[in-house]
Simulated assay, not measured.
Amino acid sequence: MTQTVVVTGAGSGIGKSVAAELARRGWQVVVTDINEEAALATVAGLVAADNQHHEYAMLDVSDPQDAQHVAEDVANRLGLDAWVNNAGISFMQRFLEAPIERYDKTLEVNLKGVFVCGQAAARAMVRIRSKGAIVNIASMAGKQGKVPFLADYVASKFGVVGLTQAMAFELAEHSITVNSVCPGYVVTPMQERELAWEAQLRGTTTDQVRQQYINDTPLRRLEKPEDVARVVAFLISEDARFITGEAIAVNGGAYMD
């Protein structure tokens, strides 16, 4: 029987790669994003066997009604075996100059979005008695504060790591596992924006900042979205059924805990 997974923020970056990797492994993928055009493009690029029917849905991860509608609709029609909370945003600014509006928006998407969607997914899984898996995309910035110009992002991702543990503890009685993945310097459109912001804030070039990211990574390369996607695939597989509440570092050694 084909299993179904929902991936948030799958219109680009890590989410798009996660959707592609899971489709290749036989999962039926529901691609969600706040950008309909991007979600459609991701679905169009997914491989599909005869038993796979990929779909997309527009989703504002911070809207409880929106999340509940997607979760219940998918559970009712396709079953719901896994949910990947990937949607996230970032904005770089010095802590002393960071506007509170940016803090509010970052936490609304990065932390509230995981709470809202995780709750909606779990409710649907419990209702249909699915022994499912939830994976939250955090960051190595969720394990250390030594990250320049991203105080609001750091706060949100530390929150995701803690929320993952709380969810795992309470959902264990329903045989639902909850884990987070903590990537490092991943080559995505988000990183391209961050390179430009950081270069401007440091008074240097994007190439120099990029090289610093590589220098900070013992494996001596930037991370690819596929590096993250493969770990997500493991965490929602049967091989990981006795892993819950963990924050798995996938960063080439850039931060070791």
Rank of each mutant, 00 (worst) to 15 (best):
A229I: 02
R129N: 13
A44R: 08
E97L: 00
E55H: 00
A120G: 04
T8F: 05
R25G: 15
L22H: 03
R123K: 08
A122W: 05
K157R: 10
A196V: 15
R94S: 14
V181F: 06
D227A: 11
I236E: 05
A138G: 00
G252F: 12
D73G: 10
N179T: 12
G252T: 13
L22T: 02
A240K: 03
M125A: 10
I214R: 11
V178T: 10
A38L: 09
A172T: 01
H174N: 14
E37R: 02
S156I: 03
T217I: 09
I34F: 15
I14K: 00
K224Q: 14
A120D: 14
A82H: 06
Q191L: 15
D50N: 04
E21H: 11
S175D: 15
D207S: 15
T106E: 05
L46T: 15
A168K: 12
L107K: 00
A41R: 04
S180K: 14
G79Q: 03
D73M: 09
F115H: 08
D239M: 14
A57H: 07
Y56Q: 01
V31P: 00
M92N: 06
H69R: 15
L163Y: 10
E37C: 00
A67K: 02
D152A: 11
R202K: 06
A247T: 11
A138T: 00
A233V: 13
V47M: 05
A168V: 04
T188N: 11
E170C: 14
W83H: 09
